[in-house]
Each structure stands twice: as C-alpha cells, then as structure tokens.
C-alpha cells in the first residue's frame, strides 16, 4: 500500500528533466525542470521569464542521444506577446549544435514542434486547460506546457473571491493534468506590491496559497553588467541567490564560467528585483 522512500529513490534516477541551459540552476534542480511538477518563474518585466520559456520550449526537444527528452512543447500565451522570430533565432543556434546528431532536426522543425495557443482572457484559458487532457492524449510527445503568464489574465478579475475561485479551479485542473500525464508545467508570474503588517512589500502576485501549491519558484533579478540573477525559494524573505545568466542572441547562457568562481562572483554582484 505504501511506497517506501527507498523504492522512490531507486526509481527516481530514471526520471528525466528538461535542462534550463544554466549550470547552477540545473544543479539546484538536479538536472532541470522536473516532469509532473509545477515550476514558476517570477520577476519584474524584462528580467528573462519569457526568454527562459522560449528556451525551454526548444530544450525539451533535445535529442535522447544527448540526454534530452526529444519531446514537444505547448506554449499558452495570455499576453499576446509571443515572438516566433525570436524562437526561430534560438532554434537556429540549437540547430548548429544538435544538427550533427540528428540532421533532420533543423530550426524549422524545432519551431514546428512548439504548439501555440493564445488565451487573451480567463474563459479561454480555463477552456484550454480543461481540454488539455484530450490534446495530450492526441499528442503524447508533448513534455512541456508553458503558461506565459498565469497571473496576467487572472489579475484582470477585480473581485478577489471570483479571482481566487478561478485560480483554485485552474490549480485543481493543472494538478489533475500532471497526475495523469508525463509533462512539466511552467508558469510565469509578476511581482506586485502588497500591504503586509502595515508595510508595503514586493511579492509575487496571486497570493500565498498559490505559492504554497507550487513545486518550485525561481526568481530572476537584474544584476550588474547586463547579467540576471537566479534566486530560489518560495518567498522574498527565504530566497537564495544561486547563479547568474546572460541573455544573448543565441539564447540563455551562464554569465560567468563556473571555473572562475561563479558562485562567489554572483554573491558579490548587487541584485535588484
């Protein structure tokens, strides 16, 4: 009836992850974004959430011979901000790396492997989430679902009780989806100001209970020298800086070579959420 930790531990090594392309983050996540879990990227606008989502949509297609999942992605865009040209640019770079292993996996093919759906309002978002079970059964290769962003359309609902109700409904369906399918779910969220104990503090939108239901929350911040910081932890009070990255034309890269003491350098760098 009960599974022991030892059984789980022995089976876990076989689990595959989607690499983020950032060494420190992959190390922290024990290989990358986990399947059957909800991972949230949170930051102010322009700190790399969407870039990371685009990168993951391609990284999930990494050939099995290179330790990848060779899957496909579904990109749910609530902000109507999806940029296919940027996706093609990232794919072209990956083609030069993976093309040697699988010649037929060219940039066009990679872009075609990213399914896209636009959900500009909450009813469409809910309808899409509800229909995902059927969609995933038709497309079993999909290993990554991105919702960019989860909070954007939800925050348009002004009535808090109604917003919470919709959020609960979405969470319930997302959790059911992850139980039934071998797929990773990545959502993005914005930062907002909140009055806590008579003081305004910066915190992720959608409240604490939403944060409680997440499996991982990863923060991106702006640092010096056009670098971005990666922080992990559920709240601003408990988060920890684990590394730095840079967004370049060819995608997301480690900002400083690990061999040159990335961790120490990252700690020295001034961070600004």
């Amino acid at each position: 009836m009960y599974e022991s930790c030892l059984d789980t531990f022995n089976n876990e090594s076989a689990n595959q992850k989607i690499t983020t392309g950032i060494k420190e983050l992959d190390d922290y996540l024990h290989g990358g974004i986990a399947l059957r879990k909800i991972t949230e990227f949170v930051s102010k606008s322009g700190n790399g959430k969407t870039q990371m989502c685009l990168q993951l949509s391609l990284n999930v297609q990494r050939p099995k011979s290179l330790g990848g999942l060779e899957g496909k992605a579904l990109y749910i865009d609530t902000r109507q901000d999806f940029n296919p040209l940027r996706l093609k640019e990232l794919a072209t770079h990956l083609e030069s790396r993976w093309g040697k292993v699988i010649p037929e996996l060219n940039a066009t093919k990679m872009v075609q492997n990213v399914n896209y759906v636009c959900c500009p309002n909450v009813p469409k978002l809910i309808a899409n989430i509800l229909s995902l079970d059927r969609f995933l059964s038709e497309q079993p290769d999909i290993k990554l679902i991105v919702i960019d962003s989860l909070s954007f359309s939800l925050r348009m609902i002004e009535e808090i009780a109604e917003r919470n109700s919709v959020l609960f409904e979405l969470h319930n369906n997302m959790r059911r989806l992850l139980r039934n399918n071998d797929v990773a779910l990545v959502v993005t969220n914005e930062l907002t100001h909140r009055l806590v104990r008579n003081r305004f503090t910066i915190s992720p939108a959608l409240g604490d209970f939403h944060g409680h239901l997440l499996n991982e929350r990863i923060w991106f911040s702006r640092a010096q020298n056009s670098c971005h910081g990666i922080l992990v932890g559920k709240t601003l009070q408990s988060h920890k800086l684990i590394g730095l990255f840079k967004i370049k034309h060819d995608g997301i890269n480690n900002a400083i070579d690990r061999t040159h003491g990335n961790h120490k350098a990252a700690k020295r760098t001034k961070m600004s959420l």
Binding site: I160, N164, S165, R194, V196, R197, N198, G207, D208, F209
Partner: peptide, 16 residues
C-alpha cells in the same frame, strides 16, 4: 498547515 497575513488581499477568509 498554512498561515497567511491578515492583510493579504489574495486571501479571502470566506473562500479559504
């Protein structure tokens, strides 16, 4: 169990 701040606007006691 989870605690939430009294002034968390995202937590409506009637709902939660």
């Amino acid at each position: 169990n989870l605690c939430f701040s009294q002034q968390d606007e995202n937590v409506n006691p009637d709902t939660y």
